[in-house]
């Protein structure tokens, strides 16, 4: 759907992740479905940063996990470098996982407390049989620690000896250990203090310049996303409702949800804060078991019409500008 002649590293086409909800104790029967991800499509070019933003429960992390094949109940096509993840053999999947790094949100929960930092970073190298236990292996780990700005002596220490920012650097070193083409960053800076957050974001920007790695960046913090991304997709209830170049999304948003999301972020400047137009949404994210009919956003939407509760808008390229929106109220849709 989102086309173009450009080279693609990752191509996601109408990806769906549905969880069945069962009732009955002895003979479980499917009584409903939670459509955590409901038909989303996007692609990532080599060396590009693509961001998914949305509130909690919008399905961002589910997308990330299903790309590396960590979830069942997955339908649709995910192609990485020409190989379809859902149909390929386990050998091929192993090969793909070598080319995709993953950084998780929680720097405390994602590092094994009983392993030394050197072993944590070296584990992907051993799993993929790239290095044996020898001098080269230790040299590689020292290099990796240097790249992420840590002292090579830290290889002998344990995770609890490090602060949140340093732990996230360890996670990043582990993610880039196998020279991946794509690194999935699931809220990598959400748990960090502002000054440390800036350090980690700068490290990510530097790594991209150095290794031409592509990022799938997942975050709920729009100001961080604006700093790091080339293109942005905005998710609401398992669907991408707007997708386009970063500047397009931030300065020329079409979808009312994107507008509300942007206006809800407090800007760190009291004068700007006073002058900003503010759209405050009523209500909260509706339940997934009984999603609203038509456009899922219509009960909270400030400009909804009766049509919105009947028609389910598909995401469309409007004005042929590679700016995609799913809203019937947008001019040109």
């Amino acid at each position: 759907m989102i086309t173009g002649k450009r080279k693609k590293l990752l191509n996601v086409n109408s990806l769906r992740v549905h969880y069945p909800v069962t009732g009955g104790i002895f003979f479980p029967k499917e009584t409903g479905r939670v459509r955590a991800v409901d038909g989303i499509s996007f692609d990532i070019a080599p060396g590009e940063t693509f961001s998914l933003v949305g509130e909690s429960g919008s399905g961002k992390s589910t997308v990330a996990k299903s790309i590396v094949g960590l979830l069942g109940n997955m339908y649709g096509d995910v192609e990485f470098d020409g190989t379809n993840i859902s149909t390929c053999s386990s050998n091929e999947l192993m090969n793909i996982r070598r080319q995709i790094g993953f950084v998780f949100q929680d720097p405390y929960g994602s590092l094994n407390p009983r392993m030394r930092v050197g072993d944590i970073i070296g584990e992907p190298l051993k799993v993929h049989k790239l290095y044996g236990e020898d001098e080269d292996f230790r040299k590689k780990i020292n290099d990796l620690l240097n790249i992420v700005g840590l002292n090579p002596n830290f290889a002998e220490r344990f995770p609890h000896e490090f602060s949140g920012g340093q732990r996230q650097r360890i996670s990043i070193a582990r993610a880039i250990a196998t020279n991946p083409d794509l690194v999935i960053l699931d809220e990598p800076v959400s748990a960090l203090d502002v000054s440390i957050q800036a350090q980690v974001l700068n490290l990510l920007i530097d790594l991209q310049d150095k290794f031409n790695v592509a990022y799938l960046f997942i975050s709920h913090d729009l100001s961080v996303v604006r700093h790091i991304s080339d293109r942005v997709g905005v998710m609401y209830m398992g669907k991408i409702i707007e997708l386009g170049k970063t500047d397009e999304i931030f300065f020329n948003p079409y979808h009312p949800y994107t507008k509300a999301l942007l206006s809800a972020i407090p800007e760190p400047d009291p004068d700007v804060e006073l002058k900003r137009e503010r759209i405050i949404l009523s209500g909260e994210l509706p339940g997934y078991l009984n999603p609203p009919s038509g456009c899922h956003f219509h009960p909270r939407c400030p400009i909804s019409t009766p049509d919105c509760s009947n028609l389910r808008p598909e995401i469309k390229n409007i004005h042929k500008s590679n700016h995609f929106v799913a809203c019937i109220k947008v001019e040109g849709y």
Binding site: V194, S195, Q197, A198, Q199, L201, N202, I205, D221, L222, S223, V224, R226, H227, I228, F250, L262, I265, E267, P268, D269, V272
Partner: peptide
């Protein structure tokens, strides 16, 4: 300065 801002662009952030 190290807080990312919506109104300003981008690239490397000033860091402590």
């Amino acid at each position: 300065e190290s807080v990312p801002k919506l109104e300003e662009k981008t690239g490397r952030l000033p860091q402590i």
